[in-house]
Design a protein around this nucleic acid. Structure first.
Lengths: 250, 250
DNA sequence: CGACTAGTTGAGCACACTCAAACTAAGTGG
DNA sequence: CCACTTAGTTTGAGTGTGCTCAACTAGTCG
């Protein structure tokens, strides 16, 4: 709890979850974000597969997601992003292999790649934090694959709820066990590889079991321990510090 | 075809698929790999979830895979790795969130992190190639999620075959449309989120349709175009050069 | 030769899908 | 202000893809 109170900048707050930053680092991050912001409406796809954006895109406010569309219209959401997350970082000639969509009205900081590189060079702690954040994002993606590949519908949704709660809590956006949850059931289905109808039924079951309470875009996890246990959620993959939260499988 | 004939080093060959290396770079990569090799038997899990290995692990010969095990024994393969791939790169205090298993007898080069960093600093092309390889690995992971989340069994397996053919071809390990394929049906099932029984039936159908020929650990794709079309395979995500191989969805 | 691993096939079942129809809430325009 | 639209959620009924359980074959190795 109680993040250092000076951390009003979303990126600095997020990075200091990955690696400790001193006041100097934090100020450098804040300066980095002092660029003309880009405001994006909810449900707008503001970066597209095939694009080659010239800036590092940092999400300062709101939720966003990564998605891949198949030619026949099927759609897979491959990541949810929260304030402080880096949505895309240009690298060489590489094109984006997915699109980015805002899930709420969002505020983006488009940072010149050169500026980020300069700051990373001058502040090793920031460079480390950025690399670790990237590593965690990859671990989350891997976990989603495990989810969709191995788990039943109930577990998939439960695991996703636990993951989001954990991440929101880390950046101070979860009051207790409740938090704003702007994801529709259709999007939840596209993220978990299920159909919207089935997602609805699973949510109904979770409510009946008293595990969650979800209405008006607010999700409250009533029995976090039970939900995590049922979904086989182990937050170790979200911690880049090398602490072990639980013993791995025997 | 015809890779530069001097590229006998698997890592150099792989990296030069991502970004052009000159002779100097190639020699630096070769020196980097001049460390005591680690030989691993087939089916040995040689790096485990929770470990914090001190070296960069490069696969020089053979196949390997990443896998995540759930406490109840379910297992998801999250990546296949081919010669020249980087299996794991230490970063800060981060622990591995998956295990690495050899699928054939394999040869690994454990490279000190500091040595790799020094070479990357002295050879910007190598640094770029490494970053791009990493980016491609992430794109492959994302595609696997799309596969398992959105595609039917036939498409999943077809897509995987197309991906592996493409990657093997790039490093010169596919003669025509045939290549050594050491993956068992059980492993194929664990990679695609299916059961071994169902994988078997899908393979039977593919054979009956004359799409593939798989026996004695050799896979031959008889109708690459047809298979790619049926599996909605678009290799754009495997190319870090920014070329567009096909138009994205309309 | 027995033990083990990998692959193959059959029969029956179930989890999640499809199709279809209400229903609610919020926004829009006449 | 109310009809109308649209997006999101909810429920029912029937279906099918892929799963489970089980048995059997073929190859390999000690």
């Amino acid at each position: 709890m109680s993040l250092p109170s000076m951390l009003f900048n979303a990126l600095a707050r997020r990075l200091s979850c990955c690696f400790p930053l001193d006041e100097n680092d934090v100020r450098a991050v804040e300066r980095l974000c002092a660029v003309p912001r880009r405001r994006v409406a909810a449900r707008r796809e503001f970066l597209r597969e095939g694009d080659r954006p010239g800036h590092v895109h940092v999400l300062l406010e709101g939720w966003a997601c990564h998605q891949v569309m198949l030619p026949d219209g099927r759609r897979q959401i491959t990541a949810f992003h929260l304030p402080g997350d880096i949505l895309w970082q240009p690298l060489g000639e590489a094109r984006m292999d997915f699109s980015i969509l805002a899930l709420t009205p969002a505020i983006i900081a488009p940072i010149p790649t050169s500026a980020l590189e300069a700051v990373a060079k001058a502040h090793p702690a920031i460079a480390t934090a950025l690399a670790l954040q990237n590593r965690v994002a990859e671990a989350v993606l891997r976990r989603w694959l495990v989810n969709v590949g191995q788990r039943a519908a109930f577990e998939r949704i439960g695991h996703l709820f636990c993951e989001l709660h954990h991440r929101l809590h880390a950046i101070g956006l979860a009051q207790g066990n409740g938090f704003a949850f702007p994801v529709t059931q259709v999007e939840l289905a596209e993220a978990t590889g299920l159909t919207p109808v089935h997602v609805n039924r699973v949510l109904r079951d979770m409510r009946r079991q008293g595990l969650i309470d979800l209405e008006n875009r607010v999700l409250r996890i009533l029995q976090l321990r039970a939900l995590a246990q049922h979904a086989l959620f182990d937050p170790a993959y979200l911690e880049p510090h090398g602490h072990h939260s639980a013993a791995p499988s025997p």
